[in-house]
């Protein structure tokens, strides 16, 4: 008998249809989701770490080119846990982000801010035995987008987590504490619960801040925990 993953409570994640975020309009399903019992396929998942983390500097976005990128150097670290507080070890963590000027190294990004020849903006690492990950990067800039007049995204880093099974897969964004753009950003506010939004905001971490070198931010990521009973009941 398989032990399933606890299903997310209503409202934990954003609704797929969000009037404030215009791109959802033609891209959200209108039909109700069909309940999928978790079986072998959902309870297993890929273990991509060894294949995707191939270099000693994959986690250090400041040392992937000949020179150092411009911007405020930061350390971003934390733990990947499941909903019961257990560390998720050996799991792949992937990030991508804009540079310090708020520009992505992507042909679709037309924001008239400079690219940085020393910054690609992508990193990967695998969690250790305690579920810990660490990246060294630069603080991404805020940038404008076309959602509405004078729309700006708060500074953020995209995170992708595979977890231990298909049922735990998560893509999210990490924000920085106290960002003045929070109140105006429909993507951040697509999470209606203030406590849920707070779980996407990193905290300044003086303990891990490296003297004379870099500020540190702490960001724990929680994926689903296990069902307490082996037989899953349908809601």
């Amino acid at each position: 008998m398989h032990e399933g993953f606890r299903r997310d409570a209503p409202g934990v994640h954003p609704a797929l249809d969000d009037a404030g975020y215009k791109s959802t309009r033609l891209r959200h399903p209108r039909q109700p989701l069909v309940y999928l019992p978790q079986s072998v396929t959902e309870l297993s998942g890929p273990q991509l770490g060894p294949e995707r983390v191939t270099g000693a500097l994959d986690h250090d976005l400041t040392r992937q080119h000949a020179g150092e990128p411009l911007g405020e150097r930061i350390v971003v670290s934390g733990r990947v846990l499941d909903g019961d507080g257990r560390p998720i070890r050996d799991t792949l963590v992937e990030i991508w982000q804009a540079n310090a000027a708020g520009r992505y190294l992507h042909k679709g990004d037309q924001h008239p801010a400079p690219l940085d020849p020393n910054f690609s903006g992508a990193g990967r690492c695998v969690t250790d035995a305690n579920g810990r990950y660490e990246f060294i990067t630069i603080k991404p800039g805020a940038y404008p987008w076309g959602n509405h007049h004078n729309a700006w995204r708060p500074q953020h880093i995209h995170f992708s987590l595979l977890g231990q099974a298909f049922a735990q897969r998560l893509v999210t964004q990490m924000y920085f504490p106290g960002d003045p753009l929070f109140a105006f950003d429909p993507i951040y506010n697509s999470v209606r619960d203030p406590e849920g939004r707070a779980r996407m905001v990193s905290s300044f971490d003086l303990e891990r801040t490296v003297p004379d070198w870099a500020l540190a931010y702490d960001f724990d990521i929680v994926l689903r925990g296990r069902e307490s009973t082996p037989i899953e009941e349908e809601r």
Binding site: D82, Y104, R197
Partner: peptide
């Protein structure tokens, strides 16, 4: 028991990562 981290969109630029 911990609450899960909410999902957010991959956005338009995920192909860099």
């Amino acid at each position: 028991r911990l609450e899960v981290t909410p999902s957010q969109t991959v956005g338009p630029f995920f192909s860099i990562g």
